[in-house]
Amino acid sequence: MSTEIENQILELQKKVGKLEKGTKDQLSMVVFSGDLDKILAAMIIATGAVAYDMKVKLFFTFWAISSLRDPKKNVSGKNFISKMFGVMLPKGRNKIKLSKMNMGGMGTAMIKGLMKKHNVASLDDMFKIAGELGVEINICEMSMNLMGFKAEEMIDYPHMNICGVATFLADASESKVQLFI
């Protein structure tokens, strides 16, 4: 009888251990779009989640990586196509455009004006706050290479890593909230 109880306890301990390792108070977000509105939404949700005591991990991939480029940094040694991509894609978060109603840049300028009027933090502020709050930014290495970007031309951000899809999946599988923007 006592061994039976012991076995049951052991089994319960195993199950509790699994639960503990399971989902954390964590937000994992794929930031895919490189549009101003969507990056802004991603950053607002990310910083808000920190206030909710959640750990936040952002996985920047594809078009979103443009928003992480540092306009002051130039790297050499790129081939022709990479250089072309570099010229055609926005260089940094202050060059990205609205996904709708851009109207040749007029819409984007208007939204930036409205954001100021309504006291919405600018992207510059959002990235600064996110850095202070410990929001992690992971850059997808594959799409970075695909677009011909180099790690050296990314912004200085305190919690930034270059990684692959496995890192995102590992983070996402232990996160209570997962989003794709």
Partner: peptide, 13 residues
């Protein structure tokens, strides 16, 4: 005052 979402929440935190 004078900050929009998520400003007040971050201030509270």
């Amino acid at each position: 005052r004078g900050t929009a979402c998520p400003g007040p929440l971050l201030a509270a935190k």
